[in-house]
Simulated scan of single mutants.
Amino acid sequence: MTDRTLTVNKTDLLNWDALKSIEVGAAKTKAATEKDGVVTLRFVKSDKFEHLASLMRLLQNKGGFPGLDIDAAEQHRSVVTSDKKKVFVFQHGYEGNEKEKLFHYAVDIRQRGIYTHGLIGGHHDGYLQGLYMYLKLIKKLEPLACLQTMLDLLAKSKLPKGTKRPAIKLKEVLTVTNGREEVPKTPKEITITSYVELS
């Protein structure tokens, strides 16, 4: 992969002071420069994301994902529809209590799909990889466009200080109690406040 260049408004950066001090190579070329309020990021690469996409494609082609179609939008489980808008969820898609071993899921974890650990697991990781896979596989964007779109979506999702993001509510579709799964008789609402709007 060749080096890529991305742009972002300086006002959307949290770490401009740290970013502007990064230098690359023997020539000590600045990795980020600013002009008229727009920051240009240089030497950006999509290799790690592209390696993941290639691995997923290879595994699917070799039968490594029985019943999973990585090109099917509905199988990208971090993408949900709320008020007729598609959003990518950047938080746990469940509420739960580890001590009581009781969890209320807004996504059906029994279904095949592309999940992020952050959506259904105990840690907050994998979101950017999941978003990249959606943009690459479903939106059919080229690597540079995927990275720029990710940056734009994250920057656009920034709210003014003191403003709260309007919550979206997802209905619980699965209750897991002590490892036993069941469809809830009276579904809870799961509140999602960390997301980016895709459409």
Rank of each mutant, 00 (worst) to 15 (best):
R4H: 01
T7W: 04
V8P: 03
V8S: 01
L13H: 04
L14G: 12
N15R: 14
A18G: 13
I22Q: 10
G25Q: 12
A27T: 14
K28Y: 09
K28R: 11
T29W: 07
K30T: 03
A31M: 08
A32P: 02
T33L: 04
K35A: 11
G37T: 06
V39T: 10
L41T: 03
R42C: 13
R42Q: 14
F43P: 05
F43L: 09
F49A: 11
L52N: 00
A53K: 02
S54T: 10
M56V: 07
R57L: 06
L59T: 13
L59R: 15
K62P: 05
K62M: 13
G63P: 09
G63A: 13
G63T: 07
G63I: 11
G64N: 11
F65T: 05
F65P: 00
I70V: 02
I70E: 00
D71T: 06
A72P: 01
E74D: 15
H76E: 02
V79N: 08
V80E: 14
T81V: 07
K84E: 15
V89H: 10
F90C: 02
F90L: 13
Q91Y: 00
Q91D: 05
G93H: 02
E95C: 04
E95G: 04
E98S: 13
K99R: 07
K101M: 09
L102W: 06
V107Q: 15
D108Y: 11
G113A: 15
I114T: 13
Y115M: 03
G126C: 10
Y127V: 00
L128N: 15
G130W: 05
M133C: 15
I138R: 06
E142R: 07
P143T: 10
A145G: 06
L151T: 13
L154Q: 14
L154Y: 08
K156A: 14
K156T: 08
K156V: 01
S157I: 08
S157A: 15
K161P: 00
G162Y: 10
R165E: 09
A167N: 00
A167C: 01
A167S: 05
I168Q: 08
K169L: 13
L170D: 00
E172A: 07
R180T: 13
R180G: 04
E181N: 15
K185T: 08
L198G: 12
